[in-house]
Computed example of a mutant assay.
Amino acid sequence: MTVGTVDVMLPHYGRLDLVQETIRSVLAQDDPAWRLTVVDDSGPAADDALARWCAALGDERVRYLRNPHNLGINRNFARCVELVSHEHAVLVGSDDLLLPGYVATVRAAFTAHPEVGVVQPGVEVVGRDGLPARTLADLSKRWIFAPRATGVLGGEDLAVSLLRGNWLYFPSLCWRSGPLRRTGFRPGLQVVQDLALVLDLLLAGERLLVVADPVFRYRRHEASVSSAHAADGRRFAEERAFFLDTAARLDAHGWPRAARAARRHLGSRLNALTRLPGALRAGAGAGTLARHAFTR
């Protein structure tokens, strides 16, 4: 059976110009079977520029909603999940871009593999200026941690792979809405909420399909929340607690190899280690980074 409309959920907080680029990339899809929902978490004091701009588009597939008060990252993502009404959805970052073939590619993927819960399409990484970027984090994802083959992955093997180093690009993932709503985001998490969600789905028996076609453009820049939290060590304090808790859950589930990978969390340690020189120069967060990189 052919997959229907894809809900493009856009949790927004930040620059107007970047979110406008994201919205334009949705409007430029080759496949018109999408609906875009912008969930603005800027708070009641923000101006109405984005609301007016969305209304002026004159496209009934675009709806704009503003939260009555600022929810924060985790709860705004949860709000987006609550608002999903079609069978498949993507939670795109408000500075990322869907390339023109994105919707057609994920619809074809789910049509061919209706048994999977998540699709990871091919991704291009760009910097703040929109030009191709080759960061250490992305090179590690591609050449060290990501599987060499495309296709359907799942179970403990996929959990081990992701816990060694999370090679997914969360804003590009397209989800089957039923499992996404049933599982949802763990309350209280911010920078690691994406990995937690995927692992929870794996524990529930869901599988992931990796597609090679590059149909998404992920923007990597230091102004992002994950980069800012990594710079001062907050990211790694959250990650350390998450990995220890996850290891215990995986042991209880009967996945000992995945539990060991969670305790080691190699990719996260390497990320902290690469940021340690900058933290030492800045005089902030070095202790947290060092503990995360070297303490078992």
Score class of each variant (00 low, 15 high):
Asp96Gly: 03
Leu97Asp: 03
Leu97Ile: 09
Tyr102Trp: 13
Ala104Tyr: 10
Val106Gln: 08
Val106Gly: 04
Arg107Glu: 01
Ala108Trp: 01
Ala108Met: 02
Ala109Ser: 12
Ala109Thr: 09
Phe110Gln: 07
Thr111Gln: 11
Thr111Glu: 13
Ala112Leu: 06
His113Trp: 03
Pro114Lys: 11
Val118Thr: 14
Val118Trp: 13
Val119Leu: 03
Pro121Asn: 06
Pro121Lys: 10
Pro121Arg: 08
Pro121Gly: 02
Gly122Trp: 15
Val123Arg: 09
Glu124Thr: 03
Val126Ile: 13
Gly127Gln: 13
Asp129Gln: 06
Gly130Leu: 12
Gly130Lys: 15
Gly130Asn: 11
Gly130Tyr: 09
Leu131Ala: 14
Pro132Tyr: 07
Ala133Leu: 14
Ala133Asp: 11
Leu136Asn: 08
Leu136Gly: 10
Ala137Arg: 15
Ala137Leu: 13
Ala137Glu: 09
Asp138Cys: 08
Leu139Met: 12
Ser140Ala: 14
Lys141Glu: 09
Arg142Ile: 11
Trp143Leu: 11
Ile144Met: 01
Pro147Ala: 04
Pro147His: 05
Arg148Cys: 00
Arg148Trp: 08
Arg148Val: 10
Arg148Tyr: 02
Arg148Thr: 07
Ala149Phe: 13
Thr150Ala: 13
Thr150Arg: 14
Leu153Gln: 10
Gly154Cys: 07
Gly154Glu: 05
Gly155Ser: 04
Glu156Ala: 01
Glu156Arg: 04
Asp157Tyr: 00
Ala159Gly: 02
Arg164Asn: 13
Asn166Val: 10
Asn166Met: 12
Tyr169Asp: 00
Tyr169Val: 13
Pro171Leu: 15
Ser172Gln: 06
Ser172His: 02
Ser172Gly: 09
Cys174Ile: 07
